[in-house]
Amino acid sequence: MGGKGWFLLKLLMFQGLFTSRLQDPGFDFFYFVLQWPGAYCDTKRACCYPTTGKPAADFGIHGLWPNYNDGSYPSNCDPDSEFDPAEISDLVSTMQTKWPTLSCPSNNGSKFWEHEWEKHGTCSESVMDQHKYFENTLALRDRVNLLQILQDAGINPDDEFYDLQDIKNAIKDGTGFTPVIHCNKDPEKNSQLHEIFFCVDTSGTEFIECPIIPRDRCPSKLQFAMF
């Protein structure tokens, strides 16, 4: 092969390598995590309502977390990509409703969002910038009305105990996707519905069945706390 042919071959190989790197986001899927405020607050640690007031009695966003298929995950991928509230100024009012903070001391949520961006969001920058990361996460929340799904199945936040499998079946029937359920404990050591995990593709826009299914961190019966 002549010099020109070798040049073209190397160019094609470089282009193919470059393209493959562009298509590789550096992780395998996202966990999209929602949390029930009643369970967050009903612990020995307790909670503080945000400065905007008590959140609605509804599932709020915890985060959108890149993960690997082997169960590990990247974190704090770009220390230079600091959270900038100005970049999401058009989303803040929606985030205060759908992604509220419950940590103490009472605050407006920006510390929570800063943590989520810097620990998890910076690991998805090959796919989306800061604004798109929060925008996509809010859009996912709009597509999953968990509280309505559970209530339609007769599962209500009334401090009663429900079967874990009934909760999973209701969510699977209502969304089309298998959830992973995490519990925490109230001061009386009752296990209560705390977090619900879904899996999302590497674009951060489409729900998928989880490539790995971690164990539910709940007993067979759990409490759905009031809020």
Rank of each mutant, 00 (worst) to 15 (best):
M1W: 04
M1C: 03
M1K: 13
M1L: 10
G2S: 14
K4R: 13
K4H: 14
K4Y: 11
K4D: 12
G5F: 03
L8F: 08
L9R: 06
K10L: 14
L12D: 05
G16A: 15
L17D: 13
L17Y: 13
L17W: 13
S20N: 06
R21F: 15
L22W: 09
Q23E: 15
D24H: 13
P25E: 10
D28G: 12
F29T: 08
F30C: 11
Y31P: 05
F32T: 01
V33W: 05
Q35F: 12
Q35L: 08
W36D: 01
W36Y: 07
W36C: 04
Y40A: 06
Y40I: 08
Y40M: 06
T43D: 14
T43Y: 04
K44Y: 08
C48M: 12
P50T: 06
K54C: 01
A56M: 06
D58V: 03
I61C: 10
H62R: 11
G63C: 03
L64Y: 02
Y68H: 14
G71L: 08
S72P: 05
S72T: 15
Y73K: 01
Y73Q: 15
S75F: 00
C77Y: 05
D78W: 04
P79W: 02
P85L: 08
P85V: 05
V92T: 10
T94N: 10
M95A: 03
M95Q: 13
W99A: 11
P100H: 12
T101P: 01
C104V: 07
S106K: 07
S106G: 14
N107Y: 09
N107T: 05
N108T: 11
F112A: 10
W113A: 12
E114H: 04
H115N: 11
W117C: 11
Q130F: 03
Q130W: 00
H131C: 04
K132M: 14
E135N: 14
N136D: 15
T137K: 04
L138Q: 02
L138M: 10
R141T: 06
V144L: 14
V144T: 04
N145P: 07
N145L: 08
L150Y: 00
A153N: 15
N156R: 15
P157H: 12
P157T: 05
D158G: 03
D158Y: 02
E160P: 00
F161V: 05
Y162L: 07
D163W: 09
D163T: 10
D166P: 03
D166L: 05
I167M: 13
N169A: 14
A170I: 05
A170W: 05
A170S: 06
D173I: 02
G174N: 00
G174I: 00
T178A: 03
V180L: 09
H182C: 00
C183T: 07
K185R: 11
P187C: 07
K189N: 14
K189Q: 13
S191T: 13
H194T: 06
E195Q: 15
F198H: 07
F198N: 08
C199P: 07
C199G: 00
V200C: 03
T202M: 12
T202G: 14
F207S: 03
F207P: 08
I208E: 12
C210M: 01
C210H: 08
P211D: 10
P211K: 00
I212F: 01
I212Q: 10
I212W: 01
P214C: 08
R215Q: 14
D216E: 13
S220Y: 04
S220R: 11
K221Q: 11
L222Y: 01
Q223G: 02
F224G: 03
M226W: 01
M226V: 05
F227D: 04
F227Y: 07
